[in-house]
Simulated assay, not measured.
Amino acid sequence: MRVTIVLSTSSGGVGRHVRSVVDRLPELGVHPHVIAPAATGDKFGFSMPQHAETAGGSRLLDPRDAVFTPVEIYTRPRPRQDLSALIELRKLLAGADVVHAHGFRAAALTGLALGRRRPGRTPLVATWHNAVLGSMPRRALLSGLERLAARRADVTLGASSDLVGRALALGAEDARLAPVAAPALPPSEKGREQMRAELGVGDRPVVLAVGRLAPQKDYDTLLAAVARWGHRHPQPAVLVAGDGPEMDRLRRDAENARIDIRFLGRRDDIADLLAAADVYVITSRWEARALVVQEAMRAGVPVVATAVGGLPELVDDDGILVPAGSAAAVSDAVVTLLDDDDLRRELAQRGRERSAHWPDEDATAEQLAGIYAELARVQPV
């Protein structure tokens, strides 16, 4: 079965998810062809060196029966580039048994390329990973693309239940929940004591946040929460791992307000950081099933999370949920955990137990292969 996978610019969770799925599909009888921007192909290893190009610009992936073709599909509307991408997609999608687009921008362009749902049209699966956020004008502009993506797809998959509800409200024919599994982290190489020594935190409790420094993550609320426990002794060591467009501003704001928080930049040792942490905190305005929260709970780090998007169904009562934008609630939740060793241990254990029942990467790929087979009317391997 030939499945063409389309995604737009990605630097994080969506690209990691697609990479994971593509690695597993050949063993399930699915031969994937990945279409994505060149930079996304390079970042997630879809592309190969120039000498491996085939006629037409497609490049062979490693030992499997898959190819990669670069097409510039952006996460925001760019009329001229979008028209060019649409023309390329119409040519490249020919011959696929099923097309799977990730993100509503990629889904909208792919839906335009394939045309309206009708007998004989190549089936389209669309996975929605994110909600449309930002100003009212931006949401109004992009809601039309959401509606187009919902109505052109044969099956819409939502990474969280609120995305499924949104797709149905916009006219999706068939919308289903499809949780995205976090890749399994390797065991910590350094262990708790060595990592804490390298971080220089001494006997201070460690509060960890991981994620892109972008408006959606609302690190301003975290800064305000940290400012509220400045009187504590020992003072918690608050560490933020990640980079992004707000890095310089957040560092400047923290320095000006004399807030004790360290921005570590991009890190590849998340397992070691989690081993050193006492509490994990996420203050996002919206998330689906945040991969870093899955990783924290698997590692047995108690979680404080905003009650937005898919986080309540992910965390439930095995962490502490707080209102978005409430520095007081974040501060109180973190302090509660730091002051109560028994509660911290209990939530750590409950997080491990809860995460043991989540679908893993193999189950995620198997679910998708089953959907492809359903739409293409063939039997999966």
Rank of each mutant, 00 (worst) to 15 (best):
I261L: 11
E27R: 15
V132M: 05
A140E: 02
T127G: 05
P26V: 12
V308S: 07
A277L: 08
P302W: 09
I371E: 12
W229G: 01
G144S: 14
D341W: 00
A275G: 10
G15Q: 01
P359K: 05
I5K: 02
G370E: 09
D162K: 00
W128Q: 02
A167V: 08
G41H: 01
G171N: 06
R298A: 12
R117S: 01
V315T: 10
V34R: 03
A305F: 04
R90V: 05
H31K: 08
Q294H: 14
P32Q: 11
L61P: 01
V3Q: 07
D248A: 15
L86Q: 05
E189P: 02
V210F: 01
V322G: 03
F44A: 01
A276V: 01
A181M: 11
Q194V: 14
A36H: 03
A373F: 04
P215Q: 07
V308A: 06
D317M: 04
D260A: 15
A348W: 11
A55P: 04
H357P: 02
I320H: 05
E173L: 14
S10P: 04
L109H: 05
R352N: 05
A36V: 04
R2I: 14
R345I: 06
G115A: 08
H233V: 12
S188I: 03
D162L: 07
P63K: 09
P187D: 06
L222D: 01
P236N: 02
P137N: 08
G95H: 10
G13V: 05
G103L: 11
A107H: 04
D42Q: 13
P63E: 15
L321G: 03
P380G: 11
Q294T: 13
A101W: 00
E146H: 11
D162Y: 11
L222V: 09
L274P: 00
I270E: 05
A225K: 06
R138S: 13
V279H: 07
R24A: 13
G300I: 14
S20H: 00
V226K: 05
D316K: 09
V279W: 09
E27C: 00
S160D: 13
M48I: 00
I371F: 08
D360E: 11
G200R: 09
G202K: 07
V164D: 02
G29F: 00
A149P: 10
L141Y: 10
H357G: 14
V98Q: 10
V378Q: 10
D260W: 00
G165I: 01
S188D: 00
D97Q: 13
S11R: 15
G309Q: 10
V34M: 09
Q367E: 11
W128K: 00
G171F: 07
D82K: 07
L157A: 13
V67C: 07
R19H: 13
R212T: 11
H129G: 09
G41F: 03
A329E: 12
A276D: 04
E198C: 06
H31S: 12
A184C: 05
A150Q: 12
S10W: 00
M297E: 08
W286I: 04
K91W: 07
H33E: 14
F104W: 15
R298T: 13
R352A: 03
L343V: 05
I270V: 15
S355C: 13
E313I: 12
D278M: 08
E198K: 06
R377D: 13
G351D: 11
